[in-house]
């Protein structure tokens, strides 16, 4: 079942520039959905449309099976969000920031302590949010988003500005929330490595179009493999391979050949050794996720 469905979103700026060009997304319930794309691809605009922060120009958005246009308030009761930088009141403490929303969401006051514990900010007491580090603010913003126990969490670049330790902590927190509470999480990022470590599903957007959508495994199945070779005389090795009709090129200081069966790899090795070449390295390699992403985006 899909927790969030977005159909054929088209959005134009006032000057006519197209930001989103038919964006369609299917986000399964209980998934961690990595919404990936370079800066300016249309991620934030899509998420803002999903939250109703921008007027819908074309297309349809359905969350929990309800149309956003007709059931906005009912839907927002079940959604937590963090769009770009944290929305916090700097002159108030963490507890006071949460107390504002506790009144609106009408949740038990004890929940404030629970979510502060959850994000590791229970000891901030009277410290004003303006005195927090960016990492602490990001964590408090997550606490704000979690206060009313939402079923869907929408996070736009939540690791922006975090140090490596903060990124690891954020990832651990989100994974725990997903596993323990079954929370569906949509997380946008331009950092592929971040999504790779966290997401179960991936949507890749570029220039307002969705280029890929599926599970992380499906994306990784797009890996293009090749055989890498290193010898003591690569020029001569390439000439020998060419005589056997193997198209080899040099890339990153290695000879790269098309993927081939293990028997063919052994045969290549034998011939090179027989020809008096020293083989230092011979193995099958594949594109990493970054290469897959770059291929998708550049195509």
């Amino acid at each position: 079942m899909h927790c969030l469905e977005v159909n054929d979103l088209v959005h134009r700026y006032r000057n006519g520039d197209v930001v989103l060009d038919g964006v369609t997304l299917r986000i399964p319930a209980g998934s961690i959905y990595g919404f990936l794309g370079p800066n300016g691809a249309g991620k934030t605009t899509t998420l803002r449309l999903i939250l109703g922060l921008i007027a819908l120009q074309h297309g349809a958005i359905s969350i929990f099976g309800l149309q956003l246009a007709a059931h906005r308030i009912d839907i927002l009761r079940r959604v937590g969000s963090l769009i770009e930088s944290p929305s916090l009141y700097d002159h108030l403490t963490a507890t006071e920031n949460l107390a504002l929303l506790q009144a609106v969401h009408r949740v038990d006051e004890a929940k404030i302590g629970d979510v502060l514990d959850l994000v590791g900010l229970a000891g901030t007491h009277r410290k004003k949010v303006g005195e927090f580090s960016l990492g602490m603010k990001q964590r408090l913003a997550i606490a704000v988003a979690l206060l009313h126990e939402p079923e869907l969490l929408i996070l736009d670049e939540p690791t922006n500005g975090l140090d490596p330790n903060g990124i690891v902590e954020m990832r651990a927190l989100l994974t725990r929330l997903n596993r323990e509470r079954g929370l569906t999480i949509v997380i946008s990022s331009h950092l592929l490595a971040e999504i790779e470590r966290l997401a179960t599903h991936v949507g890749i957007i570029h220039r307002g179009r969705v280029l890929f959508e599926g599970t992380l495994d499906e994306l990784q199945r797009r890996r293009r493999t090749h055989v890498a070779l290193a010898t003591n005389d690569d020029e001569r090795a390439i000439a020998l391979l060419a005589r056997q009709s193997i198209a080899a090129t040099i890339a990153d200081g290695r000879i790269v050949m098309p993927a081939m069966p293990n028997t063919a790899i052994a045969q290549v090795n034998r011939r090179l050794v027989d020809a008096g070449l020293d083989v230092h390295e011979l193995h099958t390699a594949g594109d990493d996720l970054e290469a897959i992403f770059m291929n998708l985006v550049s195509n």
Partner: peptide
């Protein structure tokens, strides 16, 4: 200005409120 200064309009506008 409390909302503008704290970049909080997007938070306020995503609350389940009319």
């Amino acid at each position: 200005q409390i909302e503008f200064r704290n970049n909080a309009w997007k938070q306020v506008r995503t609350l389940p409120l009319h």
